[in-house]
Each structure stands twice: as structure tokens, then as C-alpha cells.
Simulated scan of single mutants.
Amino acid sequence: MKDEVLEHGIEVALGEILAERGITLTDLSLRVGITLANLSILKNGHAKAIRFSTLSRICEELDCQPGELLRYRPSPS
């Protein structure tokens, strides 16, 4: 299932990456020290912003690059 794309066109692939690695959102929350609620907001594409420090911790834990987590998808005209 693809994560939601909001009006800003940023797609968050956190759910896909977690599934590929066999990691639950709860596990990631404990590993990176971010609340489950905030990670859920990010995963579901409802976050309005993300701090670079948060993005860095997620990328470090998931061994990925920011571009693997965030993609730009322009909205259809």
C-alpha cells in the first residue's frame, strides 16, 4: 500500500522501507527515540515538516538515504 501524497507533493515511503526490512513502527520508535504517534504521522504522509536530526536518526537506523524515504510526486493537473 502506498503512503499518502498530500497537496505539497511529497510522498513518504517509510511504510515500504519498514516492510522491506521487517521492522515495525514500534521498533523504530524505540530505536530512534521518536514517539510512535509522531512516526505514525510521518508514515501516513500527514507530517508538515521533519527535522534534519529526526531524518538523520531514521536514516541511520534504517540504513537508507533521505531520498529513499521522501519522494516528490507532482499533483496531476
Rank of each mutant, 00 (worst) to 15 (best):
E4C: 09
A13S: 11
K48T: 15
K43T: 03
L36P: 00
D3M: 05
L30N: 13
Q65H: 06
H8V: 10
T54S: 05
E68I: 01
S53C: 06
A49F: 12
E61A: 15
G67K: 09
L36N: 06
M1W: 01
T54L: 03
E4F: 15
G9P: 11
M1R: 08
N38E: 01
L30M: 11
V32E: 00
C59D: 07
L25A: 11
S75W: 11
C59V: 10
E20S: 13
V32G: 02
L36D: 04
I34T: 04
L42K: 06
S29V: 08
E11I: 01
G22K: 12
R31E: 05
V5C: 09
G9V: 04
E68W: 06
R51E: 03
A49W: 13
V5E: 06
L39E: 02
K48L: 11
L18Q: 07
R71A: 13
R71I: 09
L28P: 00
E4D: 12
L25I: 13
S53V: 00
P76V: 07
L30V: 11
I34C: 05
G33N: 03
Q65L: 09
L39Q: 01
L70P: 04
A13F: 09
E4W: 14
V32K: 07
I41Q: 14
D63Q: 11
P74L: 13
C64P: 03
L30S: 14
L62Q: 06
L55N: 04
S56R: 08
S53D: 12
L55Q: 04
L39N: 02
P74I: 12
Y72S: 10
N44Y: 15
E61N: 12
M1Y: 09
E4N: 05
Q65M: 06
R21D: 12
E7V: 08
L14F: 04
S53G: 10
L36E: 08
L62F: 08
L70F: 15
T26P: 08
L39H: 00
T54C: 00
D27G: 05
L69T: 01
I41F: 07
S29L: 11
G9H: 01
A37W: 04
T35N: 06
L62K: 07
I34P: 02
E4Q: 13
G67P: 10
F52P: 02
F52K: 05
G45K: 03
T24C: 02
G33A: 04
N44M: 14
R71G: 07
I17H: 03
I41P: 06
D3R: 04
I34V: 15
D27E: 13
G67Y: 06
K2L: 14
V32A: 02
F52T: 14
L70A: 02
F52Q: 01
Q65S: 11
E16D: 09
M1Q: 07
L42Y: 02
A49E: 11
